[in-house]
Design a protein around this nucleic acid. Sequence first.
DNA 1: GGCAACCAGGCGCTAAGTAT
DNA 2: ATACTTAGCGCCTGGTTGCC
Length: 436
Amino acid sequence: MIKKIKKKHIIDATKYIDYIGIPKDNIYNYYWIKLDNGKEYPFKLTVREAYKLTTNTDEYYDFSSNKETRKTIEDLGFEIKYYTEHINFLKDYEVEKFSDVAGSKYRKANPENVRYGMLIAPTAYKINYWAENSTIENFVIKSDKSWQWSGSFKSYLWIRIFRKNDSKKVYFVLGVDDKGNLYLELNCQRSNHTGGKTQPLTKERINEFDKYLNSSTYIKKIIKKEHLKNYNWHSLISLTKDFLHSNSTIYDELEIISKEKFIELNQDNDSILTVSDIPESTKSYVNKERNFKGKKIDWSKKQLVSSRLGLLGEELIIEYEKSKIKKLKKENILNDNIIVEKKRDGEGYDILSYDKNGNKLFIEVKTTKGKINEPFYLSINEKAFYEKHKSQYIIYRLYEFNNLSKTSKLYKIEGSELDDFNFNPTNFEISKGDFS
DNA sequence: GGCAACCAGGCGCTAAGTAT
DNA sequence: ATACTTAGCGCCTGGTTGCC
């Protein structure tokens, strides 16, 4: 039976498949017929269609794909490809086909639209395959094989990747864009569908998201469709995993940023903040022996993480002070118009609050993830401010700060207690001339 | 100019419903 | 109690219209 099939029949069958597209059931296939132009077609489907052409009927040719049948087709002058992943790699002509219709109207009543739907469906399946195999530990995907939505071909075929149990409003995205280029990026829920119940992030949160992303080391990864032929499943998936790994810290920060409020304090503040006494001594890195061995540090990343940490610590203390003031207002100890204020950089302190007598408190927050004996750093400006306002100055020294469980320990250094500490210089301004 | 409503309907997920 | 089926919800939507 199969011997009846001639080379021309196979070629004509592939042309027919080009026209109707590859049905869902044939997208996951081990064996593919490869033409000289690089296009690939599912083996069984192609042979069946070719058989129809030999008989000039719609007769269904039931046969099995085995060494013998594959050899028969090979002998006609075709290359047979075997994919252990049983799905062949994304082809440039596939993403190109998608870019042709991306974003345009889809009408079920229009047979041409339906046909195009069939043509791009395999691309959607392949994007899913890509995502399913690219997840790293603790991350999950939201699979989505749909290529149409609300009467239009989608403008992007994309899959979201997020950490298990996260808000799902911040995610990695991988997919193909309307130009037919593959891309890998970090994104967030920016809008929702009419009538949809899922709330997007507020504009303010989206601004914060973009601001952080722009200031970070993150770079969106794009694979142009012209370069797609240089990749295979293995290289694409390992590239994706690398991308997820190297940006997971940024993802975690963005997840926190996406929350309207970092911390909601309840009555039980003690469970979040544990207050201890000022330690007898702390470490110092200034007078240690130096070996000048050197190591590679990504300073921009380190600064980004620590500045973020600082903001989180401040936010925690703002909430802490707010709840303290609220309590004092309730007991009619404090005037109602008193509010806790966050100060800007350069003002010499972080937070303006009040004590129970209504006196101003200048609060400086110092946050580290380290232990209680870790030293902390004060700027010249902050030190000068302290000298001037000793009696109202207070340092909240947050240590063992945990941004996942959102808890921290702290000790307070009130007023001139800071004088008991050593002030070791860590930086020098180098200049020449007489400035006295 | 800004915003809300509307379009038209594939597909995965989940919860509810039904069968074994 | 478990397996399978079904109904219905919701989605980086963007282009357009109609209202203020």
